[in-house]
Amino acid sequence: SADYSSLTVVQLKDLLTKRNLSVGGLKNEWVQRLIKDDEES
């Protein structure tokens, strides 16, 4: 899986927004959300 934890907050928020995922919570929660989205898609 991609190394989301190395991305900036701005990059992570951009990815979350593009995938229609929530940008609520902490940075590590966003990373988990993106990883989960990868596994489900």
Rank of each mutant, 00 (worst) to 15 (best):
S1M: 14
S1L: 13
S1R: 09
S1C: 10
S1P: 13
S1T: 12
S1E: 09
S1G: 13
S1N: 13
S1A: 13
S1I: 14
S1F: 14
A2F: 15
A2G: 10
A2K: 13
A2W: 13
A2I: 15
A2H: 12
A2S: 11
A2Y: 15
D3E: 08
D3K: 14
D3N: 10
D3Q: 11
D3S: 10
D3M: 09
D3L: 11
D3H: 13
D3A: 10
Y4Q: 00
Y4N: 00
Y4R: 00
Y4S: 01
Y4F: 01
Y4P: 01
Y4G: 01
Y4H: 00
Y4V: 00
Y4E: 00
Y4W: 04
S5G: 12
S5E: 13
S5R: 10
S5D: 10
S5W: 14
S5H: 12
S5L: 10
S5I: 08
S5Y: 14
S6Y: 07
S6T: 12
S6Q: 13
S6G: 09
S6W: 06
S6P: 00
S6I: 11
S6H: 12
L7H: 04
L7P: 00
L7E: 01
L7Q: 04
L7G: 00
L7W: 11
L7F: 10
L7N: 01
L7A: 02
L7R: 02
T8G: 06
T8D: 10
T8Y: 00
T8E: 04
T8L: 03
T8V: 01
V9D: 13
V9L: 14
V9T: 11
V9C: 12
V9I: 13
V9P: 07
V9F: 09
V10K: 13
V10I: 12
V10P: 08
V10E: 15
V10F: 10
V10A: 15
V10L: 13
V10C: 13
V10N: 15
V10S: 15
Q11T: 04
Q11D: 08
Q11N: 03
Q11Y: 04
Q11L: 05
Q11G: 03
Q11F: 06
Q11K: 06
Q11M: 07
Q11C: 05
Q11I: 05
L12Y: 00
L12N: 00
L12R: 00
L12G: 00
L12M: 04
L12E: 00
L12P: 00
L12H: 00
K13I: 15
K13D: 02
K13Q: 13
K13E: 07
K13M: 14
K13F: 14
K13Y: 14
K13H: 10
K13P: 00
K13G: 02
D14I: 08
D14F: 10
D14T: 08
D14L: 11
D14R: 08
D14W: 11
D14G: 07
D14K: 09
D14V: 09
D14C: 12
D14Y: 12
D14Q: 10
L15D: 01
L15Y: 04
L15M: 10
L15T: 03
L15S: 02
L15V: 04
L15N: 00
L15G: 00
L16D: 01
L16Q: 00
L16R: 00
L16V: 02
L16I: 03
L16F: 01
L16P: 00
L16T: 03
L16G: 00
L16C: 05
T17E: 12
T17H: 09
T17S: 11
T17K: 14
T17D: 08
T17R: 14
T17L: 15
T17I: 14
T17V: 14
T17P: 02
T17A: 11
K18G: 07
K18D: 09
K18I: 10
K18M: 10
K18Y: 08
K18R: 11
K18A: 11
K18W: 06
K18C: 11
K18T: 06
R19Y: 05
R19Q: 05
R19L: 06
R19T: 04
R19E: 05
R19W: 03
R19A: 05
R19V: 05
R19C: 00
N20M: 06
N20P: 02
N20Y: 06
N20I: 03
N20A: 08
N20W: 04
N20G: 15
N20H: 11
N20R: 08
N20S: 07
N20T: 03
L21W: 02
L21Y: 00
L21G: 02
L21M: 04
L21Q: 01
L21I: 06
L21K: 02
L21E: 03
S22D: 10
S22L: 06
S22E: 08
S22N: 08
S22P: 13
S22C: 10
S22H: 09
S22T: 06
S22Q: 07
S22W: 07
S22F: 06
V23E: 06
V23D: 08
V23N: 06
V23H: 14
V23P: 06
V23R: 07
V23W: 07
G24L: 14
G24R: 12
G24P: 03
G24W: 07
G24K: 14
G24E: 15
G24H: 15
G24Y: 09
G25A: 01
G25L: 02
G25Y: 01
G25C: 06
G25M: 04
G25Q: 03
L26A: 14
L26T: 15
L26D: 15
L26Y: 07
L26W: 14
L26K: 14
L26G: 15
L26S: 15
K27C: 08
K27H: 09
K27E: 08
K27M: 13
K27G: 03
K27S: 06
K27T: 10
K27F: 13
K27I: 13
N28Y: 14
N28S: 14
N28A: 13
N28E: 15
N28F: 12
N28D: 14
N28H: 14
N28T: 11
N28V: 10
N28Q: 09
E29W: 02
E29Y: 03
E29S: 06
E29H: 06
E29K: 04
E29R: 03
E29V: 04
E29P: 01
E29F: 04
E29A: 07
W30V: 03
W30R: 02
W30M: 15
W30Y: 05
W30E: 06
W30H: 04
W30F: 05
W30C: 06
W30P: 00
W30D: 03
W30K: 04
V31R: 01
V31Y: 04
V31M: 05
V31P: 02
V31S: 01
V31G: 02
V31K: 01
V31C: 05
V31D: 02
V31A: 03
V31E: 04
Q32E: 13
Q32R: 07
Q32G: 06
Q32M: 09
Q32P: 04
Q32F: 07
Q32K: 09
Q32L: 11
Q32S: 10
R33V: 05
R33H: 04
R33Q: 06
R33N: 04
R33D: 03
R33K: 05
R33T: 05
R33E: 04
R33S: 06
R33G: 04
R33W: 05
R33P: 03
L34M: 01
L34C: 12
L34Y: 02
L34I: 04
L34T: 00
L34G: 00
L34S: 00
L34V: 02
I35M: 12
I35V: 10
I35S: 06
I35A: 05
I35R: 08
I35E: 09
I35G: 03
I35W: 05
I35C: 07
I35H: 08
I35K: 07
I35N: 07
K36P: 01
K36D: 12
K36Y: 06
K36H: 08
K36R: 12
K36V: 07
K36M: 11
K36W: 09
K36G: 05
K36I: 07
D37R: 03
D37T: 01
D37G: 05
D37M: 05
D37E: 06
D37I: 02
D37F: 15
D37A: 11
D37K: 05
D38C: 05
D38R: 05
D38F: 05
D38N: 04
D38K: 03
D38A: 04
D38V: 03
D38L: 06
E39M: 14
E39S: 08
E39L: 14
E39A: 11
E39F: 11
E39T: 08
E39H: 12
E39R: 09
E40I: 09
E40G: 10
E40P: 04
E40N: 12
E40A: 09
E40C: 09
E40L: 12
E40T: 07
E40F: 10
E40W: 08
S41I: 12
S41L: 11
S41F: 09
S41A: 13
S41K: 14
S41T: 10
S41Y: 10
S41G: 08
S41E: 08
S41V: 11
S41W: 07
